[in-house]
């Protein structure tokens, strides 16, 4: 599951942030997201979560969303992977 989730999540970030080819693939666990990418404002985060829900088949509660979850690519991948294995 991990590989599939990783790939899907990178594709979502690419689509939602309008990244250039290869850019999302180069993300590491330490690549900063919220607060590091100027595109990622509250509206963009809302769009990102909606896409994650639709494409990964999970529900993200508003309470789950905080600075830690969105701090870097690794923390977002961890959160999504946990949710997917729980469903």
């Amino acid at each position: 599951m991990q590989d599939d989730t990783d790939q899907l999540l990178r594709a979502i970030l690419r689509d939602v942030l309008g990244l250039k080819p290869g850019q999302a693939e180069a993300f590491t666990a330490q690549t900063g997201l919220f607060g590091h990418l100027p595109e990622l404002d509250s509206m963009a985060v809302a769009g990102l979560l909606t896409e994650i829900e639709d494409r990964l088949g999970i529900i993200v509660e508003d309470e789950d969303v905080d600075g830690d979850m969105l701090a870097d690519y690794g923390s977002l991948l961890n959160f999504v992977t946990e949710r997917r294995s729980a469903t």
Binding site: S42, M43, V45, A46, G47, T50, D62, D66
Partner: peptide, 23 residues
């Protein structure tokens, strides 16, 4: 779906400003 996304954006913006709101 469109409403949920707009509500979520508002909730996130409010949280950054230190206010707690729910859908």
């Amino acid at each position: 779906s469109q409403m949920r996304q707009m509500l979520r954006a508002r909730i996130l913006a409010a949280r950054e400003a230190g206010r707690s709101e729910t859908q």
